Computed example of a mutant assay.
Amino acid sequence: MDFTQNNRLEQITDETLIIGIDVAKHKHVARAIDDRGRDLAKRLVFENGLTGFKELLDWTQNLSEQTNRPNLIFGMEPTGHYWLNLAYYLKALELHAVVVNPTKVKRTKELDDDSPTKNDTKDAKVIAQVVRAGRYHEPILLEGIYAELREGMKLHDMMQKNLSSVKAQVQNALDRYFPEFTTVFKDWTKKTPIHFLKKGYLPEDIVSCSEEALMVEVKQAAKRGVGIKRVQELKHAAETSVGLTVGLTMAREELSYLIDQYLAIEERIRAHEARLEELVLQVPGASEMIAIKGIGVLTVAGFFAEVGDLSNYKDPRQIIKLAGFNLQLNQSGIFKG
């Protein structure tokens, strides 16, 4: 993996053909320049698919032969996810694909024509010029176990967001129909409150039930932890509730549906976390990291999901910079901060 700009500049020689690609959802635009920044051909517009990728390779190969420049560098912005398919395709063919910072592209685009005009053709050339200046980076294109971990952590985040959404919807329903419920059960995600909510118990249902009947429901959910005193508190809360008394049939359906969703997502998360643990323990050094006090399995899984194989790095500072924790010097005259 690259570390210094000098190393990157050494790869740009008089035998290098630089291809700048402006990536989009359906069509990409490619421009070709040499090591001095001169245009070598008209732009190429190609589809974001196998046919388009092959068209790009044919176009590039012809230019390479015509200009006697066998060394190819394909540069693109890592914006969104549309660049990934092309990057992995080029990597599979052992072609050199690099990425440039979108901020650098934005700041560079006025150098040629003193105009902030933005279009795909211009952006493709600007990307190529940024690559020519050595201001590019080798992309982290994960494979094998590391790719599995990245997709796994992405799915885990998705599940957690869905779980938070369902919890918020349950709280919304409680605020409307039984706002006093959480004064009796501080955490409605425990077994007993989950049982009552799943069965659609609203204030009028609890009021109509005897304490003995409610205790039977409690024992079905939890063998201990909730006694007659808590049941009496629940009855009192139901009797004095200011919750809505309209639309109760559908309100019960809503609560039952949301609790089913909550339980299903929770179960999937537990199973998924167990699978992530199996995966991360296959990574060299992961078990030693997990053994550190305060470091959990998901933390280590998330680390390798972002960083990938540690053997791709030459210096620890690369990982620090990747995480955004590198210190910045702010100096002017005698001021230093």
Rank of each mutant, 00 (worst) to 15 (best):
H156D: 14
R132Q: 04
K154V: 03
G134H: 01
G152N: 14
R135L: 04
L141T: 03
L141I: 12
K161R: 10
D157N: 08
D157Q: 12
A124C: 02
N162W: 11
D112L: 05
D113F: 15
I145K: 14
M159P: 05
E148I: 11
D113C: 14
T117C: 03
L149C: 06
A147I: 02
E148G: 07
K125V: 14
R132M: 00
G152H: 08
I145Q: 10
N119I: 10
D113G: 15
A147M: 12
E110H: 12
E110T: 15
K118R: 14
K109L: 13
Y146M: 05
R135H: 04
V130E: 02
D123E: 15
V126A: 08
K161I: 12
I145E: 11
V131N: 09
A133N: 10
G144P: 04
T121P: 04
Q129C: 01
R132Y: 00
M153Y: 07
Y136M: 14
N119W: 10
E138L: 11
L149H: 04
D112R: 11
D157L: 12
D112F: 01
G152F: 05
K154T: 09
D120R: 13
L141R: 02
G144T: 03
I140M: 05
P139N: 01
Q160P: 06
A147W: 10
P139F: 01
K125Q: 15
P116D: 12
I145S: 07
K161D: 08
A133W: 07
V130D: 03
K154S: 09
E138D: 10
Y146K: 01
D112M: 13
I145V: 11
L149A: 08
P116F: 14
K154M: 09
E110V: 08
R132A: 03
M153Q: 14
I127C: 08
R135I: 02
Q160N: 12
I127Y: 14
R132C: 00
D120C: 09
E148W: 06
N119R: 06
M153E: 12
D114F: 15
I145T: 13
D157T: 14
E138I: 08
H156P: 02
D114H: 08
E148M: 12
T117G: 00
E143C: 00
D113Q: 08
G144H: 09
A128C: 15
S115W: 01
T121Q: 12
V130P: 02
A147E: 11
G144I: 00
R135F: 01
V126D: 03
S115L: 06
D123I: 07
E151Q: 13
M158P: 04
G144A: 11
G134D: 01
